[in-house]
Computed example of a mutant assay.
Amino acid sequence: MIFRQLFDQESSTYTYLIADPATKTAILVDPVLNQVERDLKLLEELGLNLRYCLETHIHADHITGTAKLREVKGCLGVVPDHAQANCADRHIKDGETLQLDGIAIEAIATPGHTDSHMAYRVNNDRILTGDALLIRGCGRTDFQSGDAGTLFDSVTQRLFTLPDNTLVYPAHDYRGHTVSTIGEEKRWNSRFAERDRDQFIEFMANLGLPMPTKIMEAVPANERCGRIASPDTTNIISIDFSSTK
């Protein structure tokens, strides 16, 4: 399996490139619009055919690259079941498997950060946790129908029940971490290890974080799979990423 972790510094977002080396088919998880040129260049260098763009959730801090990648590569856009994105080619349900030739990607519903969040278990040895579980942290729960109690249940009952050696790859990191394991997070993630459900709910209610700076732009755009509407017209702004140099 080809597996690459790619980083967008502006939003601290990880995009994941997964590909079957035998068939050269690929998937991008949580692509970022500002990094489409980078992703296209890597696909070209590795000789890969992009089949899917897959989202863990409707993001509030960056605009997805799905629309542009779908336009350039003809791939399919896949979002979690119940996500408000009618533009998607497919909504994936809890327990469904997205088969990328020899690679199995299992959807695991992990709501709480948003009401339609998925984690993706790849070939049973690693999990892309989105914003549900970060390395020594978790996503916030104070917008997009988030719910702290639901997130606590998702992490402790759905993710922490996976084998301890399962590799954890989050959608974001703000401290330079790249990978963890389920066993590490069960032991050292203080948001869960040091709190019961009620304490977690109280803690999350008092984070006092500012709203993401791009939320008013990003959420509507991501509900259109990354197509950006001009503020004064219904036209779509075209961003040229045809060059991959």
Rank of each mutant, 00 (worst) to 15 (best):
residue 2 I to M: 12
residue 2 I to H: 13
residue 4 R to S: 05
residue 7 F to C: 04
residue 11 S to A: 15
residue 13 T to F: 02
residue 14 Y to W: 11
residue 15 T to K: 01
residue 20 D to V: 03
residue 23 T to D: 10
residue 26 A to R: 02
residue 26 A to Q: 11
residue 28 L to P: 01
residue 29 V to G: 02
residue 30 D to E: 12
residue 43 L to H: 05
residue 45 E to V: 11
residue 45 E to I: 09
residue 47 G to F: 09
residue 51 R to T: 12
residue 52 Y to Q: 04
residue 54 L to C: 06
residue 54 L to Y: 09
residue 55 E to N: 13
residue 67 A to T: 09
residue 67 A to S: 11
residue 68 K to G: 04
residue 70 R to Q: 13
residue 72 V to K: 13
residue 73 K to G: 05
residue 76 L to I: 15
residue 76 L to V: 15
residue 78 V to P: 04
residue 82 H to D: 11
residue 82 H to K: 14
residue 83 A to Y: 05
residue 84 Q to V: 15
residue 84 Q to H: 15
residue 85 A to F: 08
residue 86 N to T: 06
residue 86 N to C: 03
residue 87 C to L: 07
residue 93 K to N: 09
residue 94 D to N: 12
residue 97 T to G: 01
residue 97 T to R: 12
residue 98 L to S: 13
residue 98 L to P: 15
residue 98 L to H: 07
residue 98 L to E: 13
residue 99 Q to D: 08
residue 100 L to T: 04
residue 106 E to Y: 07
residue 107 A to H: 04
residue 108 I to T: 11
residue 108 I to H: 09
residue 112 G to M: 04
residue 112 G to L: 05
residue 112 G to D: 12
residue 113 H to P: 09
residue 117 H to M: 10
residue 119 A to E: 03
residue 122 V to C: 12
residue 128 L to H: 01
residue 129 T to M: 07
residue 129 T to R: 03
residue 129 T to Y: 04
residue 134 L to W: 07
residue 137 G to S: 14
residue 143 F to R: 11
residue 146 G to V: 01
residue 148 A to L: 05
residue 153 D to E: 14
residue 156 T to G: 08
residue 156 T to V: 13
residue 161 T to Q: 08
residue 162 L to C: 06
residue 163 P to F: 05
residue 165 N to V: 03
residue 166 T to D: 09
residue 167 L to C: 02
residue 172 H to F: 05
residue 176 G to M: 09
residue 177 H to L: 11
residue 186 K to H: 02
residue 190 S to P: 00
residue 192 F to D: 02
residue 193 A to F: 06
residue 196 D to T: 02
residue 197 R to G: 07
residue 198 D to S: 11
residue 199 Q to D: 11
residue 206 N to T: 12
residue 206 N to M: 02
residue 207 L to T: 02
residue 209 L to K: 08
residue 210 P to W: 01
residue 211 M to S: 15
residue 212 P to W: 06
residue 212 P to M: 03
residue 215 I to W: 13
residue 217 E to H: 02
residue 218 A to C: 14
residue 220 P to K: 02
residue 224 R to E: 05
residue 224 R to V: 00
residue 228 I to H: 07
residue 232 D to S: 09
residue 232 D to K: 08
residue 234 T to Q: 13
residue 236 I to K: 05
residue 237 I to Y: 08
residue 239 I to Q: 10
